[in-house]
Simulated assay, not measured.
Amino acid sequence: MSESVITTSGLTKRFGRVVAVDHVDLDVPTGVRFGLLGPNGSGKTTLVRMLLGLVHATSGSATVLGEPVPRRAAAVLPQVGALVEGPAAWGHLSGRANLRLLDAAGPGGRRRDRRRRVDEALDRVGLAGIDRRPVKAYSLGMRQRLGIAAALLRAPRLLLLDEPTNGLDPRGIHEMRDLLVALNATGTTVVLSSHLLTEVEALCTRVGIMDAGRLVLADDLASLRAPTGRIRVRTPAPDAALALLDGRVEVRDHDLLTVRGDDPAELNALLVGAGVPVTAIDRERRSLEDVVLDVTGSGNDRFEGQARR
């Protein structure tokens, strides 16, 4: 079992009568890409803010990088890069000037290396050619990239990102995904909160699902997307396949059949051996959307992802 970078026990936050985070027990192992998934208002951002010591818990406890927060936040935060609720910046200054000020305000790091750190962070997020325009003239996507650059200034052990692809176009989303995978490969644990099903499924290796302030599920994505015990077969001769499989077909959608079974190779051999052509065959797996809808009770349209079929 790998060491954990984040642990919480019974972590709860109330705002008056509203319970924003409700007795959350969370464990994030070192080295994962963890997606904290939930609809807007599910408590994701409040939980992240508590992990950063920005909001104090009503009850329960949390540790980050082995230290209790918020009590030891000053020791922890220099090792954490964060982007929460959108990037903050001085709008009248350029992006590069913003990063220099943020770097100067942070603990540690030699002044003579500041230009290199700033340039490397800008290059990593695709803003290497940034000009002297003030940040107030930036697009939302550029602001988002700048916020992530700020989170990368000190080569953090842990990245905590809230909706990191907000405002990015499809190419920018792909580039950000590649960046986070590359950072993770060099040892940085990545934790991101999002309501985008497809982004979490494409990027993360482990997923936690929140609903109404509760953590209702946390598991490896590979385990969540286990085979269903069905095989999908595409054939130009569906009638012949139906007759041969004798009741094993559960769903027919034109030339696509869903068949009870666990071994695609065995099924393919049976069909081809009987003269039924097969153009595609694979195991059916649960999508992350299927999992979310199962554990949150109903299809909540505050999640964004591919439409169910």
Rank of each mutant, 00 (worst) to 15 (best):
Leu146Cys: 06
Leu146Tyr: 06
Leu146Gly: 09
Leu146Pro: 03
Gly147Asp: 02
Ile148Phe: 07
Ile148Gly: 06
Ile148Met: 03
Ala149Asn: 11
Ala149Phe: 05
Ala150Lys: 07
Ala151Glu: 10
Ala151Val: 00
Ala151Gly: 10
Leu152Met: 07
Leu152Gln: 07
Leu152Ala: 09
Leu153Cys: 12
Leu153Glu: 13
Leu153Ala: 13
Leu153Thr: 12
Arg154Leu: 02
Ala155Phe: 01
Pro156Val: 06
Pro156Leu: 09
Pro156Thr: 10
Arg157Phe: 04
Arg157Pro: 00
Arg157Cys: 01
Arg157Met: 01
Arg157Gln: 15
Leu158Trp: 11
Leu158Thr: 08
Leu159Phe: 00
Leu159Asp: 06
Leu159Met: 06
Leu160Glu: 04
Leu160Thr: 05
Leu161Gly: 06
Leu161Ala: 10
Leu161Met: 01
Asp162Ser: 06
Asp162Thr: 08
Glu163Asp: 07
Glu163Gly: 10
Glu163Trp: 04
Glu163Pro: 07
Pro164Glu: 14
Pro164Lys: 09
Pro164Ala: 12
Thr165Ser: 15
Thr165Glu: 02
Thr165Ile: 15
Thr165Asp: 01
Thr165Trp: 05
Asn166Met: 12
Asn166Trp: 09
Gly167Leu: 12
Gly167Glu: 04
Gly167Ile: 12
Gly167Phe: 03
Leu168His: 09
Asp169Cys: 03
Asp169Leu: 07
Asp169Ile: 00
Asp169Arg: 08
Asp169Ser: 05
Asp169Pro: 01
Pro170Gly: 13
Arg171Val: 14
Arg171Leu: 02
Gly172Asp: 11
Gly172Ala: 12
Gly172Ile: 10
Ile173Ser: 07
Ile173Val: 15
Ile173Trp: 01
Ile173Leu: 08
His174Thr: 12
His174Ala: 15
His174Gly: 03
Glu175Ala: 15
Glu175His: 05
Met176Asp: 02
Met176Glu: 03
Arg177Leu: 04
Leu179Val: 01
Leu179Gly: 04
Leu179Phe: 09
Leu180Asp: 10
Leu180Lys: 11
Leu180Glu: 11
Leu180His: 13
Leu180Ala: 08
Leu180Thr: 11
